[in-house]
Design a protein around this nucleic acid. Structure first.
Lengths: 117, 117
DNA sequence: TGAACGGTTGAATATTTGTTCATCTATTAA
DNA sequence: TTAATAGATGAACAAATATTCAACCGTTCA
């Protein structure tokens, strides 16, 4: 039997130290959610595109070779997470980044990838 | 009918500019994968814990109040993504961060959350 | 030896999640 | 008004994924 979750000989000081440094569950969840938003290929490509220009939905659809519906469905959570904002102009809705930190994070990951050959 | 993916009046210059700035599909996938690794509550908590101390699996299990099996299953992809490394010592396997960039990224996200009230 | 502990792993299950499809609203042009 | 375009959205489906459960391997200690 995988007699898991019984008392183990843990290293208490380490656990305490870690527990102390842990952000609140709420902050933790928020942070994980932002990472999750960037952790999908489609959404990350949208973000990368918006780092260059503001774009309307059908621009993005053309760029990513996806339906407008699929793009729109991915824009929704990004909007919700306040990572992007939009402005309406006639029939178009133009999206752009709403967060300077995002650029920094994305840049950092690509640096990371580049540096680890 | 959702007559999607028909010719739209796109903004060609914007699309071209974005296309030009896009990293290769491979780099893009790698970056998205790293974000995805951090985009899960359990894995992010593991990373946060390891930012303080190296820890063995049952320390993490105790800290996170999860079974060793569940923790181990999440350690595997993190190991695979080269975000953490391990050393064996007797019956224990101690995990620690394998990547300075990770700390920076995590820090940046929490800064972000803090700054947007 | 063998029993106990620490950890890993595969299979199964349950949940999340990305995309498609159809429909619907808003805006513009005929 | 009507038709066409741009976009959003809910439901349905398919694929990915987190956790549980059971079994397994390696190390230590009796």
């Amino acid at each position: 039997m995988g007699n898991d979750i019984l008392q183990n000989e843990v290293h208490l000081e380490n656990i305490k130290k870690a527990k102390k440094a842990m952000p609140s569950a709420e902050r933790m969840g928020d942070a994980a959610f932002i990472f999750k938003m960037l952790g999908d290929n489609t959404r990350l490509r949208i973000i990368m595109a918006l780092m260059e220009n503001e774009m309307c939905v059908c621009d993005l659809a053309e760029l990513l070779q996806m339906t407008k519906s699929a793009v729109s469905h991915q824009l929704a959570p990004l909007r919700n997470a306040k990572l992007i904002k939009y402005r309406k102009s006639g029939k178009n809705v133009f999206y752009s980044l709403d967060d300077a930190h995002v650029t920094g994070m994305v840049q950092m990951v690509f640096d990371h990838i580049a540096h680890q050959k």
